[in-house]
Structures are given as C-alpha cells and as structure tokens.
C-alpha cells in the first residue's frame, strides 16, 4: 500500500458558517495504480488533493483523519520532514497548471529552481535529466527549454508541468484537472502520456477531474464524490458498465453517445441547500423515507457505495 487516506474531513469556516468540504473520505492507493477522483464543482475534489499535500490554508482546516504514506502519517510529521517528501516522492500538478509556470523565467529555470530547492545541484546532470524528460513528454528540449511560458501553447505548458512534476522521480503524482482546459487532440495526447509514465515507470497517479469519460480511459479505479461525500468507489469497468449509485448513473447517462440512438434525458436540478440526509436526495429518482438520513457506505458487488438502496437485508 502506497497511500492510505482514512476518515479525512476538511471544513472551511467563516464566522459562524461552516462548510463541510470533505467528509470522512477514505481510500487506498496501491503502487502503480491510477485512481480517478470524479466530482463536479463544489464536490470537494480539489480540497481533498490539497489536504493530502498539506496545502489547506485558513479558513480551511483538517478536522479529522489520517494520510498514511509508506507507513508514515503525512499530517502528523514535522513540516521539515514533509518538505523532503513533497516533490521528491509526491508531486503535484495544480489545476489550470498551464498558468502555474513562472511567466518571467524560462522553462529551464523553472526546472532549475525546483532542483535547487531540493539539493539537486549538479548542473550537467540536471541538463541531461531535463532534456530526457522533455523528450518523454514529446517536446523538443533544444527549442522549448529556452522559451518563456507565454511562447508555448496550452497543451505544451501542460506537458512542461507534467515533466516538472517528474523531475525528482516521484512515486506518486497528484494531478488536478490536467486536461480540462485543452482541446480534444491535446487531451488525447496528455492521456496517452500519463498512461505511458504510469505503465513504464510504475508511478502511481491520482487523477482529479469532472469528466468521467476522460478519466475512464486511463484509471484503474474510480472514486466518485458529490458535495464532499464519497458516493461510489470501484473498478472503472464495473462502474462504467453498471453504475450503482443514482448519482453515478446520472453522470453516465449524461454522456450522449457518438453513435446509435439518442434518447432525451431529463435531468433534475439541485434546488435546495444541502443540510442533512443523503447529499443527492433532492435530485434522486429513487429517494425514499430512509434517505432523510445520511446513507452509510455499503459493500456491494466488490464496490463501496453510499446509498440506502444497497443496504444488505436480513443480515
């Protein structure tokens, strides 16, 4: 087990108003696995990523849970120790990462800064390493390394960011919406790239996105979130073929097919502010009396699902 997140909860508090962004989320990640975290805006997916890398800033606060990386709790350890692990073993590709590069320094300098701050001072070795990484992500090192970020297209910047995240040979890369600002062709190329770094270098990847179709192409497992709660967790193929949670069902039926017959689908919209009970209650077609209470997580067909429909009977 590479990473084990258990019972993680994050809140944002402003005065007396508290927003529960992430609620008792637990998952494991094996070495070499690609985990896709799916959620819409406000589902807590980015907060979850930030919590793992200790980047929650006030007014946000981690109120419970543990993040065990290789047997050590990342949240408990002293910050100095954590800094050594961050980037070296766990790296992060932020959301809208094409705008995350420093605009006033060249691409190569961005690599150099990261290397310097982790004691990688051998200039020659660094050059070689960076050139190698650039080739891996499909960019011409001679040309691109001396360019400034504004001279690169969105897809190229995204690939630079992925190369940067691999500079110190991490074992885990957390990617927050790495393809959502790109067009079809670039998405396709980035996905292929991520798949190949996962397969060839055995790097584990947590891939956060709102686009289930996008992540399903590379993820081994999917983890569906809604309003800060885990809704379903299981193998990608199982979830795509037979979604259990009504929310996952809605997500999958919301993808119009490329071929064949098209059906009109009516979608219920969220009308009420979530207070208690099942987070999906106001939009669910299968809702019944029990749903006024927050569903527990049940194990059903080898999957974890948060829905009263899958409560074992007479057990």
């Amino acid at each position: 087990m590479l990473l084990e997140v258990s019972d993680l909860s994050v809140i944002y508090s402003a005065g007396n108003k508290v927003v529960r962004a992430v609620n008792n989320v637990s998952f494991d990640l094996e070495k070499g696995e690609v985990l896709g975290i799916i959620g819409e805006s406000g589902s807590g997916k980015s907060t979850l990523a930030n919590a793992i890398i200790r980047a929650i800033k006030p007014p946000g606060k981690i109120v419970s849970g543990r993040v065990i990386y290789k047997g050590k709790d990342l949240l408990e350890m002293p910050y100095d120790e954590f800094r050594k692990i961050m980037w070296k073993e766990i790296s992060y590709v932020p959301q809208a990462s094409q705008n995350a590069l420093n605009p006033v320094i060249t691409v190569y300098d961005s690599f150099k800064y990261v290397a310097d701050s982790h004691g990688f001072n051998d200039e020659k070795a660094l050059r070689e390493k960076v050139s190698e990484l650039m080739k891996l992500v499909g960019l011409d090192p001679k040309r691109v390394l001396n360019m400034y970020p504004f001279q690169l297209s969105g897809g190229m910047r995204q690939r630079v960011m992925i190369a940067l995240s691999m500079l110190l040979d991490p074992e885990l890369i957390i990617m927050d919406e790495p393809t959502s600002a790109l067009d079809m062709l670039n998405q396709e190329l980035i996905l292929k790239l991520i798949k190949s770094i996962n397969k060839e270098m055995q790097i584990s990847i947590i891939y956060i996105t709102h686009d289930i179709l996008n992540v399903a192409q590379i993820a081994d497992r999917l983890f569906v979130m809604y309003k800060g709660y885990m809704m379903e967790d299981g193998k990608t193929e199982d979830i795509i073929k037979d979604p259990l949670n009504p929310y996952t069902q809605l997500l999958i039926s919301s993808i119009p097919p490329l071929k064949g017959e098209i059906k009109n689908i009516n979608v219920k919209e969220d009308t009420s502010y979530y207070v208690s009970g099942c987070p999906f209650l106001s939009r669910c077609d299968h809702a019944f009396e029990r749903c006024k209470e927050l569903p527990s997580v049940f194990l059903y067909k080898n999957r974890k699902v948060r829905c009263w429909l899958y409560e074992p009977h007479g057990a």
């Binding site: 079809m184 396709e188 192409q217 490329l258």
Partner: peptide
C-alpha cells in the same frame, strides 16, 4: 480524425489512431 479521437462510452478502450499535432 475529429470523429476518431472523440472518446465515447462504447469505445473507451479502443486504440485510437495516431493523429499528428501541429498548430
């Protein structure tokens, strides 16, 4: 090419053809 690279629920694991990128 545009149709071929568009992901769809029924061709998730199908190998997609190589498309050159050039802007």
């Amino acid at each position: 090419d545009l149709i071929n690279i568009t992901p769809s629920i029924d061709n998730l694991y199908k190998e997609k053809p190589e498309v050159k990128i050039n802007y």
